[in-house]
Design a protein around this nucleic acid. Structure first.
Length: 887
DNA sequence: CTGGTCACG
DNA sequence: ACGTACGTGACCAGA
């Protein structure tokens, strides 16, 4: 079956240029656009296996379109030289790869593509057109699909006539009418001023075409009618400009477009010349030019033996359970507590079974349910934490997670965003797995395909798991993270799921009541503010607020943002002395935040079934190894201001008579710093259990501790924070409201005293430069690719990260250890107390009265003993009838 | 869908 | 000279 791919060369290289970070070869020539183009090209070849292919380029400076309209593509920025230099490179590379390229004087790439696609269409051949330009949609037909490139060049959306109808309610031909009405700023096509996509679509749905709209203009009214009448000619011309010319006099034959596959003899040298080593490797061409005949692509997807399970086949699945090596649970929905379970797939070495979720209710599925819930059976999967939660709320127990490929991928590189299973499969050069988006769509476009296709996709995932897991185990061992993975993160993931399922009660009634109080305060404040401003406006709009403060009231502009005046709290504090309205706005902000995020937001998350909030701890987000919390975030419940702190009264035990018990590490990050820097002074402070900020002040200012006043302590505290964050004089000056010079002096003084800390800061940066990454005490890694950047900002950022990550990350390691140990203790001692929340340096429990005494000593003991450092760890415990009281 | 703002450690 | 403190998530406005 013939398949032709037509690539809009100019468009794609342009997109690639702006999407890719700068990349230069040894000679200093920029190659980023060619690289981006090539990765996309190779992906197209792998995924769509074309038999014929061409890349079309614009030729010449003026085209026939300019004859009718001088300004066509006027106002467009000149092509930057860094990009134009890359065209010859790309063309040479394409020759090496064996991809035909077409161009023709006075015609644009669009027109060439339009013409070739028409010819192919007429011959009944299957065509795919690749471009970032929506204009191309007009070429879609029964045989022709448009692949719209999105997000730089990394994603592709496929459009046939059906998809165009779904999205716009238009036929492909009507795309030209759409452009005729709305215009296109990037091509300087005017359209009708004031008519955007929305209006244009409405008009077309009613009148069908530009001509139809012009004829029917009488039936319109007001401004719209006027606009269209005055710009009728613009509309006609715009449509013409947007119409792709499909009669270009091309002499090329079908045979000239043939693409028999990459030619390894010439592709290797061409890629090598551009220094695209990663691509050479991906194509297995890195050896000599003769890298093997068929090695030009990733291993072809083996034909999987997939069984779509129906009721009758459940016994066969049951019989296969002992041979299962991996499973994938397909869910739908962001919040796993509310997610749908679509189905699951089980992989043995030979067969892959897809089991639709409904089948799990059948009696014959009992062995499968038992298998899922058996903690003794080791399971390999992807995001098993999510699977566990989703299944739990459907009444199905899950246990035995052994290797979670998502979690392993996170440990191997916690900052890599693209860690979908499909990405991992690609990373390891395994047979391709379609991204979910391609099969299921996303957002509003999410649709389950027919059973066979769905089953094949989900089974494809489970089939991919074993290969990925094997590679990861190897890599974890090579990077000394196997222990971190199997003894800490994997066990923790089950504990987190338990905490989340347990949830914490949030008192709906009390929240509503507090909400009413806030509401009347908000109304009162708003009224006063409007009265002073002399007008009502949207107080939540920084834009409108800026207008009032800086234009109407003429207050001085302290700081600007990208988009206008800054009105954040720091700015408002400075403005407060100038005008009484400012203080009111600050109060309004405070209460409005509490109301929207913590009253209304929290109420929305309370489950009507059990009156609890079930947060979702994410173990694979924070680059330092910390957890994050979502739906709702229970790691940022107010505490600093009393008004907000009251929110904590709403969090209560789930059983009468029980208590909330909270324990937090005291100065864990500075204690960690004392340990890893081995600074004598800092260690001494903790060994003697002194107030660290007072001690710092006394040392830095050279006065006895008794002589440290509150101001000195405040400064020392800011320095201590700064040290942990990777200090800079600027940051400290901002924080303390002093000059940069003073801050620099201050830091110097600090380092003079705490020389071990200085040595650590210097060494960790050197180490990062050398190794390219930093680690925590437990060996958790973070790569810092910018540590050697020539850009000052990027490099400075990386340096501060190098200083901070081992500290923050080790603290995260420690509390994770404490959680695993705590879980073990609770189970071992048969306690009924439950661990509910983690807030970075704090653990929150609910505790029955008869366990209170025991827990008061056990929890801090476990936390303090989680990891042995050269300074003691300290945890402080408190309890009460709610989270507020546990202070 | 991004930016501004603000809640937490 | 460069222009920032480290790590998160939720809400709102306004394209």
């Amino acid at each position: 079956m013939d398949k032709l791919i037509l690539i809009d060369g100019n468009n794609i290289i342009y997109r690639a240029f702006f999407a890719m970070p700068p990349l230069t070869n040894a000679a200093g020539q920029q190659t980023n656009a060619v690289y981006g183009f090539t990765t996309m090209l190779l992906r197209l070849i792998e995924e769509h296996k074309p038999t014929h292919m061409i890349v079309a380029f614009d030729a010449g400076k003026t085209t026939f379109r300019h004859e009718g309209y001088q300004d066509y593509k006027g106002g467009r920025q000149k092509t930057p030289p860094e990009l134009s230099e890359q065209f010859p490179l790309l063309k040479e590379l394409l020759r090496g790869l064996g991809v035909p390229q077409f161009e023709l004087e006075t015609y644009e790439a669009d027109d060439i593509i339009g013409t070739v696609s028409r010819q192919a269409d007429e011959a009944g051949r299957s065509v795919m057109i690749v471009s970032g330009d929506k204009d191309m949609l007009q070429l879609a037909s029964a045989h022709t699909t448009i692949a719209l490139v999105r997000k730089g060049v990394t994603e592709i959306e496929l459009y046939g006539p059906e998809q165009i109808r779904e999205k716009y309610g238009l036929t492909p031909e009507q795309i030209t009418d759409l452009k005729g009405l709305m215009g296109d700023a990037s091509d300087n096509i005017p359209g009708v001023p004031g008519v955007g996509e929305k209006t244009a679509l409405k008009l077309l749905h009613e009148f069908g075409s530009v001509e139809g709209v012009l004829e029917g203009v009488e039936s319109l009214k007001g401004k719209m009618k006027e606009r269209i009448e005055t710009h009728a000619e613009d509309a006609r011309m715009s449509k013409k400009l947007a119409t792709i010319y499909r009669e270009v006099p091309l002499a090329h034959t079908w045979e000239e477009m043939a693409f028999p596959g990459l030619n390894p003899d010439t592709a290797g040298p061409a890629l090598a010349k551009l220094e695209f080593r990663s691509l050479l490797e991906r194509l297995n061409l890195s050896g000599s030019s003769a890298g093997g005949e068929e090695a030009a692509e990733r291993p072809p997807a083996p034909e999987l033996e997939i069984v779509i399970t129906d009721e009758a086949k459940l016994p066969e699945v049951a019989a296969a359970l002992p041979d299962v090596q991996a499973l994938h649970v397909e869910t739908y929905g962001e919040n796993p507590h509310r997610a749908e379970v679509i189905g699951l797939a089980l992989s043995t070495s030979g067969r892959h079974y897809y089991v639709p979720f409904e089948l799990l209710k059948q009696e014959a599925a009992a062995p499968l349910l038992e298998w899922l819930g058996d903690p003794g059976i080791r399971k390999t999967g992807y995001d098993l934490h999510r699977a566990d939660l989703a299944l739990h709320w459907k009444g199905i127990a899950f246990a035995g997670a052994y290797h979670d490929t998502q979690l392993a991928a996170y440990l191997l590189d916690p900052t890599e965003a693209n860690q979908s299973l499909s990405d991992l499969v690609a990373k390891y050069g395994l047979p391709r797995l379609a991204p979910d988006e391609e099969v299921l769509g996303k957002g509003a476009k999410y649709r389950l395909p027919e059973l066979a296709k769905l089953g094949a996709h989900v089974a494809g995932k489970s089939a991919a798991l074993l290969g990925v897991a094997a590679k990861q185990e190897r890599e974890l061992a090579d990077t000394s993270m196997s222990g971190l993975f199997h003894d800490l993160e994997m066990p923790l993931s089950r504990i987190l799921a338990d905490m989340e399922k347990q949830g914490i009660v949030a008192s709906t009634g009390d929240l509503r009541e507090l909400g009413k109080e806030f509401e009347s305060q908000i109304a009162g404040l708003a009224e006063k503010i409007y009265a002073i401003a002399g007008t009502e406006f949207n107080l939540n709009s920084t834009k409108q607020l800026g207008e009032i403060l800086f234009v109407k009231l003429g207050l001085p502009v302290v700081k600007k943002t990208k988009t206008g005046y800054s009105t954040d709290a720091e700015v408002l504090e400075k403005l407060a002395p100038y005008h009484e309205i400012v203080q009111l706005i600050l109060q309004y902000r405070t209460i409005a935040k509490l109301q929207s995020t913590y009253i209304e937001g929290l109420l929305k998350e309370i489950s009507p079934e059990d009156g609890k909030v079930h947060t979702y701890y994410r173990q694979t987000i924070a680059a330092t190894g910390r957890l994050s919390s979502q739906f709702p975030n229970l790691q940022n419940i107010p505490i600093r201001l009393e008004e907000g702190r009251k929110i904590r009264k709403m969090f209560v035990p789930s059983e009468p008579g029980w208590s909330i018990l909270a324990a937090d590490y005291s100065q864990i990050e500075l204690r960690v710093l004392a340990h890893i820097s081995d600074d004598e002074r800092l260690k001494e402070a903790f060994v003697l259990d002194m107030d660290i900020h007072t001690k710092t002040a006394s040392d830095v200012f050279g006065v006895p501790a008794e002589a440290v006043d509150s101001n000195m302590r405040r400064s020392a505290k800011a320095v201590n924070f700064g040290i942990v964050y990777g200090i800079s004089d600027y940051g400290l000056s901002q924080n303390l409201g002093i000059t940069r010079k003073e801050a620099a002096q201050f830091i110097d003084q600090y380092f003079g005293i705490f020389q071990g800390v200085r040595r650590y800061m210097d060494e960790i940066v050197l180490e990062a430069r050398k190794a390219g990454y930093v680690t925590t005490l437990l060996g958790r890694r973070r790569y810092l690719p910018d540590i050697n950047a020539s850009n000052f900002n990027l490099r400075s950022f990386a340096e501060r990260t190098a200083m901070n990550t081992p500290i923050q990350g080790t603290a995260a390691d420690i509390i994770k250890l404490a959680m695993v140990e705590m879980d073990r203790e609770l189970a071992g001692r048969g306690l009924k107390s439950r661990m509910l929340l983690q807030v970075h340096d704090e653990l929150v429990f609910e505790v029955p009265p008869d366990e209170l005494e025991q827990m008061k000593s056990l929890v801090p003991e476990v936390m303090e003993g989680a990891l042995k450092l050269s300074v003691p760890l300290k945890a402080e415990v408190s309890y009460g009838s709610n989270w507020y009281e546990a202070k």
